[in-house]
Design a protein around this nucleic acid. Structure first.
Length: 273
DNA sequence: CGGTAGACCTGACCGC
DNA sequence: TGCGGTCAGGTCTACC
């Protein structure tokens, strides 16, 4: 999926399109993605328009002109496609389709169905996944003192700690590997044993890799595309992710791939301690 | 509570 | 060509 940079790129793409156009009609073509999609969404969207889209970590929140808010999460394989109505062909995994007032169509496509489309609030209370998620890594909430404190007492690996969305929400499998490379910390290091100095390097490393990836339009590995069908190009600048056995860009040592908690991690055994 | 396998779903790719 | 196994950007649940 889309990690934070891809969600942010998608959000910016949607903002170029949605607020200027009314939603003439909405269709739901899947019974459920991650969860059952509320049946009243199409009726509530008809005739409305999106006034703004904000982001909390990997979640987008669509603010509607009728006062309601929609949560949209792209899961592992979700993306939006915008096209002229006459060019639009509904394919197998187009689960959520908006017909817009300028004769264009916006379709949510998600083969693996790990995405999420739901009302953001129920009886004015945030749903659990918005209420309980961790801090946004691009906000000032993420600073060295905070992170050092959070890592105390954690016996898990740095990889698992940074992937824990209840602590920091937005990092995923790619950008954890990349950030740990820039901070010269091995993904296998026990979180509680990471020093204050290392934490002080890790925080700017996380922010830099996310900012750089957003600037590059995200990373396109398999299915990620911007709303206009553009691929991101940050994958060309990966230092370790997906580069098993290839030379480290700093020291030429072959990059190592290991499995942690069932998922791949990549690191340079020479540069990262 | 902290930590970790397993589950959810489809498609692409590799080796035989 | 076809089949089985493996892997993939996320995250929730069950269990220890």
């Amino acid at each position: 999926m889309p990690e934070l940079p891809e969600v942010e790129t998608t959000r910016r793409g949607l903002l170029r399109i949605l607020p200027k156009r009314a939603i003439l009609r909405a269709e739901i073509h899947a019974l459920k993605l991650r969860l059952v999609i509320p049946r009243d969404i199409p009726a509530a969207l008809k005739g409305a328009h999106v006034t703004d889209i904000t982001r909390r970590a990997k979640y987008m929140i669509w603010h509607l002109s009728n006062g309601r808010d929609l949560v949209v999460h792209l899961g592992m394989s979700g993306r939006f496609r915008h096209s002229a109505a006459r060019d639009f062909e509904c394919t197998k995994h187009d689960h959520f389709i908006l017909y817009l007032s300028d004769d264009t169509v916006l379709a949510y496509h998600d083969p693996r169905k790990f995405g999420l489309i739901d009302w953001a609030k129920s009886n004015d209370v945030d749903h659990a996944w918005l209420a309980n998620i961790g801090i946004d890594p691009l906000s000032d909430d993420l600073n060295a003192a905070w992170l050092y404190d959070k890592l105390r007492g954690r016996k898990t690996s740095m990889k698992a700690a940074l992937l824990d969305q209840k602590m920091i929400n937005g990092l995923g499998n790619i950008y954890v590997s990349e950030a740990l490379f820039y901070a010269k910390i091995r993904p296998t290091r026990i979180a509680a044993r990471v020093t204050k100095n290392e934490t002080a390097k890790l925080v700017p490393a996380i922010k830099k890799v996310l900012h750089d990836a957003i600037g590059a339009g995200g990373s396109s590995l398999r299915d990620y595309r911007d709303v206009d069908g553009q691929v991101g190009f940050f994958q060309d600048r990966f230092t370790v992710y997906g580069r098993a056995n290839e030379p480290c860009r700093t020291c030429k040592t072959p990059i190592k791939q290991i499995t942690q908690n069932g998922r791949s991690s990549f690191y340079c055994p020479h540069c990262q301690k």
